[in-house]
C-alpha cells in the first residue's frame, strides 16, 4: 500500500501526500516526543523530517520500509536536537491522567496507572526502543536501522524494560 502511495507522492499528488503524512504523523511525533520530551520541539522536528522525506522521496528504493526510513530521520533529528540543546523538559505524568483505560473498574484503573507510571519512568533509550517495538511494531532489525544501536544492545534494553513492566504487571495481578 505504501508503495502505491509513494509512487503517487513522487508525482506530487496532494491526496497521496495527505494519506502518507496522516498515516505516520502521530507515530513519528510520539517517537520525537519520547526523545526530546517537549511537544513544540517535537512538532518542529517531525515537520522538518517530513519535508526532508518528501524532498527525497524520489530516491526511496524500497530497500527498507518507508516508516523505517521516516523514523530513522526523526530519530536522528531528535538526537541532533538533544545534542544542541542539552536540556530535558520532562512531560508531566499529569498529562496522561485522562487517558481511556481498557477496563472501567477502579481497581484495574489503579493497576494501569501504575503501569503507565512505570512506562513513563523508563529511561529515554528504553522508552524509545519499547515504543518502537510495541507501538510502531518495528522488528529488532528495523530498530537497529532507525537508532543505529547494535542488535545485542537493543535486546538488552528490551529485556530490562520488559522486566520492569512485567514485574509491575505481576504485582498488580497479585494485588487483585
Amino acid at each position: 500500500m505504501d508503495h502505491e502511495l509513494i509512487n503517487k507522492a513522487v508525482s506530487g499528488d496532494p491526496q497521496a501526500l495527505t494519506v502518507l503524512i496522516d498515516k505516520y504523523k502521530d507515530l513519528a511525533f510520539n517517537l520525537a516526543v519520547s526523545i526530546v520530551r517537549n511537544g513544540e520541539d517535537a512538532m518542529d522536528i517531525i515537520q522538518d523530517s517530513f519535508l526532508k522525506v518528501l524532498e527525497n522521496i524520489g530516491r526511496f528504493r524500497n530497500e527498507s520500509k518507508f516508516s523505517t526510513w521516516l523514523y530513522r530521520i526523526v530519530y536522528n533529528r531528535s538526537i541532533q536536537y538533544l545534542n544542541k540543546k542539552r536540556k530535558s523538559d520532562y512531560i508531566n505524568i499529569d498529562t496522561v491522567k485522562n487517558i481511556p483505560y481498557p477496563d472501567n473498574s477502579s481497581e484495574k484503573r489503579e493497576d494501569y496507572s501504575k503501569l503507565i507510571e512505570t512506562i513513563n519512568e523508563l529511561e529515554e533509550r528504553e522508552y524509545t526502543v519499547v515504543s518502537l517495538f510495541y507501538l510502531n511494531e518495528k522488528s529488532i532489525k528495523d530498530i537497529k536501522t532507525i537508532t543505529g544501536l547494535s542488535t545485542s544492545n537493543i535486546k538488552v534494553i528490551l529485556y530490562r524494560a520488559r522486566k520492569k513492566l512485567y514485574q509491575n504487571l505481576k504485582s498488580s495481578y497479585e494485588r487483585t
Binding site: N30, I91, Y101, Y112, L115, S131
Partner: peptide
Amino acid sequence: ILRENMKR
C-alpha cells in the same frame, strides 16, 4: 497502554 498513552 502505549497506544492509549501515545502523544498525538
